[in-house]
């Protein structure tokens, strides 16, 4: 917890003790806008504690009291969240709510941004991933990532998938490498479409195929967790459906966290849903509950399209 955050929370002590529905942000927000300008910390504090169970029985990754700053600006405020094994968790919320930032913290993608500072605890199988002994390159092999835009290397389809295993020394010889490439392509549901042209450039595939190639590339490093940052936003509905089907299959073997702007997609693919607002985790719960009966008013407003 930052000092800012705890200072602000004392201001709203009276409201934070009461029930979920009465300690709501939006009322405070509107009041604040009418009378005096509230600081972001005050607004965040007025959101109250996270609603719902942030912890699970079989956590793969855990975030505890995570704060993230970009220079002076705080992007995430004291987030507690578990990512369970063999489960898909979707993270939703308006732009700038910190969902992507949190996702990128999970495999230390934010290391590349010099002004970014992460505090609090983030663990993978109970081990601190920001610890001194943790090699971010190895971490990223265990926690893979798929990005918004398909970004295959300007190499052949085969090389795109083989790159990671080769880098991490996952194969002893060519035939083992071939096996990894074929299995990964198959798991990503694209093998049948590309088996005759593994030497063709990956960039020559269609958008949906490229994205599945990127997923194959991620799987090839045999990760334990797959992070997806809006993996379907550049794809057509058919390619999207294929990726979603794939997410469903992959969740049997991996822990998956997906950031998406499509609420319908979150509803379709995930077992748990986390709703973020202004850098705070507002509510987390079973996807079915979040989409039929959310407990926090802000969640309700967001998923019913009542913002702005």
């Amino acid at each position: 917890m930052t000092s800012n955050n705890s200072d602000a929370s004392t201001n709203t002590d009276t409201s934070s003790a009461s029930s979920v529905t009465s300690s709501l942000g939006p009322l405070d927000l509107e009041k604040g806008q009418g009378t005096k300008e509230q600081s972001i910390e005050e607004i965040v504090a007025s959101l109250g504690d996270t609603v719902g169970k942030t912890r699970v029985d079989n956590p793969k990754m855990s975030a505890t009291g995570v704060d993230v700053f970009y220079a002076d600006k705080q992007a995430i405020f004291g987030v507690d969240l578990d990512i369970a094994n063999n489960e898909v968790i979707s993270m939703i919320g308006p732009s700038g709510c910190g969902k992507s930032t949190l996702l990128r913290c999970l495999n230390r993608m934010n290391d590349t941004i010099p002004i970014c500072k992460v505090t609090g605890e983030l663990t993978l199988d109970g081990e601190d991933i920001y610890g001194r002994d943790t090699d971010p390159v190895l971490l990223r092999a265990r926690v893979g990532m798929v990005f918004q835009k398909p970004n295959p290397f300007p190499k052949s389809i085969y090389e795109n998938v083989a790159y990671g295993p080769r880098l991490h020394g996952l194969s002893r010889n060519k035939s083992e490498l071939d096996d990894i490439v074929i299995t990964s392509l198959r798991k990503a549901g694209i093998f049948e479409e590309v088996k005759d042209r593994l030497d063709a450039p990956g960039t020559g595939l269609s958008g949906g195929q490229q994205q599945r190639l990127c997923i194959a590339r991620t799987i090839a490093c045999s990760p334990e967790v797959i992070l997806m940052d809006e993996p379907c936003s550049a794809l057509d509905p058919i390619a999207t459906a294929k990726i979603e089907e794939l997410i469903n299959e992959l969740s049997e073997n991996y822990a998956i966290a997906i950031v998406t702007h499509s609420m319908q997609q979150a509803a379709r693919v995930s077992q748990r849903t986390a709703y973020f607002h202004l850098g705070k985790l507002v509510e987390v719960g079973h996807t079915a509950d979040i989409f039929t009966n959310p407990r926090h008013e802000l969640t309700e407003k967001y998923i019913t399209g009542r913002f702005g």
Partner: peptide, 9 residues
């Protein structure tokens, strides 16, 4: 509209 939450209810 694919309503959710209170709209769906």
């Amino acid at each position: 509209r694919q309503p959710a939450a209170s709209d769906l209810r």
